[in-house]
Simulated assay, not measured.
Amino acid sequence: MFILFASPPEKDLEWSDQGVEGCYRFINRVWRIVNEFSCAIKEGAGIDTSVFTKEDKELWYMLNNTLKRVTDDISLRFNFNTAISAIMELVNSLYYYKDKVADDSKNKALIKDSVEKLIIMLAPFIPHAAEELWSVVGKESSVHEQKWPSFDPAALIRDEIEIVLQINGKVRDKIVIPSDLTKEQVEERALESEKIKAEISGKNVVKVISVPGKLVNIVVK
């Protein structure tokens, strides 16, 4: 895994014992989260997105976004390092979900789907460990015989997004807004932020620069 993660295939690889240790720690993190979710995985049934909570939606988005990124990186670009990086982000999201959501509120079907697809995505990179993890979640067949999972395009459309608010290029606040707001509406929300109001009080707003889906930068004098 380290060799695939450390460098794109067209570039030279510089060996690093620390890098190997980092990949070892990551595999252990995967092992722990799969084992911690093993009961939920075995009890989970079909996914019903209509009952998703805010945290469920975020994990569902991360799962499908990761599937898209990993599929494209492997099949189109052969960028194995960025594919592994995307999987690492998904593992972080699973840990966040575990810590954030109470046990009796966790969506077992979502956990089952997320972990099973995680293991399948890991199989090309850590084949032996993935095979063991596949058996941990109660599977009798080989993970390498499974069909590569597809992503749900609808899951990539977020209801809400986080926007960074800057003043003269420096971050001053972050807000969560509906994803379907117009550019003008986003800028209005930015100027309504209490932190932004306090920062620009008594100053002249020269212009407002928006980067859709990412940030609003307010230039003042």
Rank of each mutant, 00 (worst) to 15 (best):
L4H: 08
A6K: 12
E10Y: 12
E10L: 08
D12I: 12
L13Y: 01
S16A: 07
D17P: 00
G22Q: 10
F26Q: 05
N28R: 15
W31I: 11
W31Y: 13
R32C: 05
I33R: 00
F37H: 02
F37P: 01
K42A: 10
G46K: 14
D48Q: 08
T53M: 02
K54G: 01
K54P: 01
E55V: 04
K57M: 00
K57V: 01
Y61E: 03
M62S: 02
L63F: 01
N64T: 07
L67V: 08
K68G: 07
K68H: 09
D73S: 08
D73V: 04
D73R: 06
L76R: 13
R77K: 15
N79Q: 13
N79V: 07
A83S: 10
I84N: 00
I84W: 00
N92E: 03
Y95T: 06
Y95R: 07
Y96C: 09
S105P: 00
S105V: 04
K106A: 11
K108Y: 12
D113I: 08
D113Y: 12
V115I: 09
K117T: 03
L118R: 05
L118M: 11
I120W: 03
I120K: 05
A123H: 02
F125A: 02
I126Y: 13
H128V: 08
H128L: 14
H128M: 09
A129H: 10
E131T: 10
S135D: 04
V136R: 13
K139Y: 09
K139V: 11
E140I: 08
E140V: 12
V143Q: 00
V143L: 10
H144F: 04
E145L: 14
E145I: 14
Q146L: 07
Q146S: 09
Q146V: 06
Q146Y: 04
Q146R: 14
W148H: 11
A155D: 05
L156Y: 15
I157C: 10
D159G: 09
E160T: 13
I161T: 00
I161M: 14
I161H: 03
E162W: 13
I163G: 00
V164C: 08
G169M: 11
R172S: 08
D173I: 05
K174D: 07
P178A: 06
S179I: 13
T182E: 00
K183M: 07
E187P: 04
E188D: 10
E188A: 09
S193C: 13
I196F: 06
I196G: 02
K203E: 03
V206H: 09
V206F: 06
K207A: 04
K207Q: 02
K207L: 01
I209V: 13
V211S: 05
P212M: 03
N217Q: 11
